[in-house]
Structures are given as C-alpha cells and as structure tokens.
Nucleic acid binder design. Structure first.
Lengths: 283, 283
DNA sequence: GGCCGGATATGCGAAATTCCACGAATCTGC
DNA sequence: GCAGATTCGTGGAATTTCGCATATCCGGCC
C-alpha cells in the first residue's frame, strides 16, 4: 500500500503543475515533493511525471492516477471541515476571503464590533482577488461579487453597492466635461461590470491611468488626475472627492456570502456570517 | 492540513479496533500507530480515541471523523487498483483467495499449467476461510462458495462440486449402517450446507470427531475412524476411500469467481481468471 | 491466588526524511 | 543578447520518525 502522504504530495503536484508551486501550498521544500513523488512512482511501479528542466508534466499514467486520487483529496478536505465543525463553542479562528478593497474598507473598520461581541473568535481576513476555494478550505467564509457556483456551498445575497464617478472637487470645477480624464482598471479587470460601464462613459476621452488597485485610483483622483469609477463605500468616505453625475444608467454589484455546507452550523462561523451581514446592512 | 498518513493510520485503527491490530495490517509498530493518531489529534485539536489499558475506543468525535475519512480509504484503494491496472503486459503478481482445501487440492496441483502458459505471472495463493476483501485489495481474485455480494465486484459462477460420504474400504465392509460413526465439522462450520446435510444423515448415530480441517477428516476416515462428508474432488482422489451411498438427496456447492471491476481488464488477472475457470472445467 | 496472553505506554538508538544551499537550465523583459 | 527571475536537481547536515525492548496493565484460566 502506498504511503498516503506520498499521494497527497502527488495530488498537489498534479493540481499545481510545478514542484515549486506544490511545495509552497504544502509548506515544504520542493525537494521533498520531488522525493515523495519519486517514492510513489517506486511503490506503484509507474512513471507518473516527466521531469524536464523547467516544467514537470504528468505522464498518461500520472493523469490517470491523479484523476483517481482526486476524490481522496475531496475526502481529506471533508475531514478537515468535519474536524473544525466538531469543535465546540464560539471560538477558534475563522478565515474570511473577500475582495481586497472590500476587506479593508468595509469589513476591517467594523471588526471591533465583532471582537466586542465574540472575544474568543480570531479572524483571518484574506483580501485577494482570486476566488479562494472554500472546498479546499482556503477560507471558511467568502464574500464574492458574483454568485458562487462551487459545489457544496451555501450562498446568500447579503447586499449590494453602487458605483459613481468621483473626482477631486477643484478638478471637477475647472474641467469641462469633454476634457475629463479618466482613471480605470488595467487589463486584468477588463471584463468587470464597472470597467465596462466606465468604457461606455469614457467614449473618445482619455484614460490616463490604469491600475488594478482601487486605493491607487482613489489617491490619483484625489490628486486631480482625473475621475474614477468607485464604489460608493469608497468614494463617499473620502472627503476630498465628490460624485460626478453622468446620464448613463447607474450600476451596482451584488454581494454574496458563501460558506461550505459542512461549516455553516459551526457557532464561530455562524457568528462571523451574522457579522458580515450586519456589515452590509444599510445603516 | 493534517498529514494524510496520520489519517491512514487513524482510519485503520478505527476499523481494526486496537492499536496492535492496526499496526499489523499497516505493517508497522503499534507505537507508530499510537504516535500518528496522537499527531492527528494534535493537528485537529480533537480527542479522537479513549486510551485505556487494554482497549482503545473511539470518542464521538473520533467516530465522526472516521466516518468522514472512510471514503478517503476507498479512494486510496481505488488508486492502488488503478496503479495495478495501468501496468502493461501479462506479468506481475496476482493474488488468489480461496477456501483452504480448495486451494491446496484443486488449484495448487494445476498451477504448473498456468506457469507453463504465462511464465511471467507470479501467483500468491491465499488459502483462508475468512472472505478476503477484494475492495481493499487483500486479494486480486477470489474463489468463493457463495455468490459474493461486495460492491464493485464482477462475479461469475464457474462450476460446482458435489459431496458424498466417504469411508475406508475395510471400515465400510465390516460396519453395519446403524453402527456407523461420523466425522464432521466443528462449530465454526455448523451453518455450512454440507454440515447441515451431514446432520440429516447422522440421525441418532455418533459423531466421533469434529474438526474444521478437511485434511484431518480425510486422514481420520482413511484410518477407519468413521465416514466423512467430503467434496468429490477430495474423496475421489484418495484411493483408500470409497463412497458410501445414502438415500438423502445429494448436495453440491457452487463455485464463484470474483474480481474487482477495476482489475478485470488487467492481462495478468485475466489470465489467472481463465486458468481458474479451466481448473473447474470437468475434465 | 497466581500465571499467562495480549494490549498499551515509554525510553532510546538507528534510520529515514527533511531542510538548506548551491548550481544548471529555461523563460521573460528590456 | 543579456540580466533577472523562476524552476528543477543534488549533496550534506540536522531534525524527525520509526522500530525495538521494556514496563505496566487488564482479563481469563487453571
């Protein structure tokens, strides 16, 4: 019987694609991954990966084995969730995945409320653009701007927020509409609703700054570089900015709360979810 | 994330019931099992087993985790089968589980035929009364006397054999029917069809020897201790014995061949199955 | 009551595993 | 074309893990 930990390393390698990436997610050295995969090849008597200088690719046998072993990983994550769900009481660490600026602007400022109500809960707030997989427990709870489709999740729409154009007051005063400059997202966000909305407004005018970081957009707008499409929670809280009305139909994005089925009954997780709902409730 | 090998040890412990038994099936020291389970408890933060001097019993949390982890073991066995199935060609070791006397009397004598036809196949012939689990790869192929019901198996009836009463020639000559002594199975086989059949014949007469070993029955019958209910393949091949006819309806038992779905296409396994079928074919 | 078989803890030495560091190879951007 | 970044391979030192031996405990049996 093969060592299960060897299988763990191999499955991770199969998913991540490179030894180094697998090593990072496993929290070990890449040499360890290489050796464990070699051990698995030894014990199965099959060649599982093609080792080449810069990339390692799975052989046909490797793909087959990886496919069969994938359910094993599913089960392993289920064990992890079951273990967390078995812990009694409202304590322990709960990790939240949310869009970066949403995390810093909306959630973080209110964390003291949660802290006051449930002192035993430790929060890990992960602001990241990529959608953390709740299935593999990269986070316990996730806030998403689109309805999650991952299997095994309980999802719930808990609110929404609108966008407006914002500019520095003195910039808007002195600049005629046809001469406005714009601040937009970079290519990585080209498909986002707010960027599409912004393009309909920009028309022939100029986009002078593209950035994927909303805070940078705020700073640039404050400095009078141009106008930016910002969520209300950001723009309205910045006194140096004011809204710039446009005829286009305003847009808004929905906020969805997602939790894995297995964790939804955990007291600490429930508490965090209620807190997140309250964060989004209109004051 | 918990170490998968820790989970492996824990799942085995959960199934086997004791540290020592788990250690035996895993092929490690019981201290290792204890340490790994302790490590799992550490990493999950749950108490999984109650350690007592003579027995270790799962806690409620332990049962829950074990139940969730069981599919992981299923997947691990599937990986093992997939690995074996991926091996090309008619070679490698194939293990056969069969009733003990059947293995020694019917299969073993003909193994040279298989050997001649497929020199690259190594056979592991396991004669054991308990039914080896093909699902967990305790054997690749099994011969059973009843239709297997395990999930995932391909089963096929490949023959049958009958029973008769046998006794030493001189014993049968000198002993009148009402004075016959009998040789039967012990309590562990009390429910077997041949034992039930034997009881209908014995009536008020005496059972002078009970044993679970068929070879012992043969020896005793040869020595003139009494008559025994033996399968024809055993009794007919022993020149010192001859059948003793009885009015009761004769019985026979079916022989079933079982193989796991995932292994039925492996060349070596197919070859062994064909060989086993030929063993049962009436000459 | 004493003995025995089997099970679980514990301590220690050996062995295996892991991390670390360095070098080679490849891809990317300028 | 070259520098920088990333990746994989390898060898040696340190840590961890494992197996063995011993001690202890419990239940059953004579």
């Amino acid at each position: 019987m093969a060592d299960w930990e060897d299988l763990h390393h191999f499955v991770t390698l199969a998913r991540e694609g490179t030894l180094s990436a697998a090593a990072r997610t496993l929290g070990v050295d890449h040499a360890t991954v290489a050796r464990r995969v070699a051990a698995l090849e030894q014990s199965t008597g099959l060649k599982l990966v093609d080792r080449r200088a810069r990339t390692t690719s799975l052989t046909e046998d490797g793909k087959r084995i990886a496919a069969v072993a994938a359910p094993m990983e599913e089960a392993a994550f289920a064990v992890g969730r079951a273990a967390q769900a078995a812990k009694p009481g409202v304590d322990g660490e709960v990790s939240i995945s949310a869009p970066p600026n949403f995390a810093s602007s909306v959630i973080a400022p209110q964390l003291t409320l949660l802290r006051a109500q449930h002192p035993a809960i430790r929060i890990k707030l992960i602001g990241e653009k990529r959608q953390a997989s709740l299935g593999r427990r990269e986070a316990d709870v996730a806030l998403r701007l689109m309805r999650p489709v991952e299997a095994g999740l309980m999802v719930r729409k808990i609110g929404s927020f609108g966008f407006s154009l914002y500019g520095a007051a003195n910039y808007l005063e002195k600049t005629p509409a046809h001469a406005l400059s714009f601040i937009g997202y970079d290519a990585s966000m080209a498909d986002s609703p707010q960027e599409i909305w912004l393009r309909t407004i920009v028309g022939e005018r100029e986009v002078v700054l593209r950035t994927n970081d909303l805070e940078t957009q705020v700073s640039a707008a404050c400095a009078g570089l141009g106008v930016a499409a910002l969520p209300h929670y950001l723009g309205d809280s910045e006194p140096r900015l004011q809204r710039y009305a446009v005829p286009q139909k305003p847009i808004s994005r929905e906020v969805w709360l997602a939790v894995h089925r297995d964790l939804r009954q955990v007291p600490a997780v429930r508490a965090v979810m209620e807190f997140l709902v309250s964060c989004l409730r209109p004051q």
